[in-house]
Computed example of a mutant assay.
Amino acid sequence: MNEYLKVFDQYYKQTGIEQRDFIHANGYWHEVFHCWIIERTDSEWRIYLQLRSKNKKDYPNQFDITAAGHILASETVEDGVRELEEEVGINVRFSQLISLGVIPYSIDNEKIKDYEFANVFIYELRGGIEQFTLQREELDGIYSVDLNQFILLATSKIKKIEVSGYKYINEKRHYETKQIGLEQMSTLPESYLLEFIPRMKQKLIEAT
Rank of each mutant, 00 (worst) to 15 (best):
P60E: 04
Q62W: 04
A68D: 07
Y12L: 13
I65C: 06
S53Y: 09
F22N: 10
C35T: 09
D58T: 12
S43C: 09
H30R: 03
Y59L: 07
H34T: 07
Q62D: 12
Q19W: 00
G27D: 07
K13T: 15
N26R: 05
K54H: 15
T66Y: 01
I23D: 04
F33P: 06
R46D: 03
D21Y: 02
G27S: 04
I65Q: 09
K54A: 15
D42F: 03
V32W: 06
E18P: 06
D58S: 13
I38C: 10
H24I: 06
S53L: 06
E39L: 05
A67M: 07
G16M: 09
G16C: 02
R52W: 09
K57S: 11
K54F: 11
E31W: 07
H34K: 13
K57V: 13
I65K: 08
N61Y: 14
E39M: 01
G16N: 08
H30C: 07
I17E: 06
Y28N: 01
D58Q: 13
F63N: 08
K54R: 13
F63L: 12
Y11P: 07
D64P: 01
I37A: 10
Y11S: 15
Y28Q: 07
L49T: 01
H70D: 12
G27M: 02
S53M: 07
K56E: 13
I37S: 05
E18W: 06
S43L: 09
I65G: 08
E18Q: 11
N55T: 14
Y48M: 02
R46C: 00
E44T: 03
G27Q: 04
S43W: 05
Y12K: 15
Y12M: 15
P60Y: 02
I17L: 03
R46G: 01
N26C: 05
R20G: 00
K57C: 00
I37T: 04
Y12A: 14
T41G: 06
A68H: 08
R52A: 09
R20I: 04
G16P: 01
H70V: 13
Y48R: 01
I47M: 11
G16L: 10
Y11V: 12
Q50A: 15
I23A: 06
L51P: 01
N55Q: 15
F63I: 04
Y11H: 14
H24V: 09
T15L: 09
P60K: 06
V32I: 15
N55W: 15
W45M: 10
D42W: 02
W36H: 11
H24S: 02
K57Y: 11
I17A: 00
K13P: 09
K54D: 14
Y48K: 07
W29I: 10
Y28G: 05
E18G: 06
A67S: 11
N55C: 13
Y28W: 11
R40S: 03
Q19D: 09
L51R: 04
P60F: 05
V32D: 13
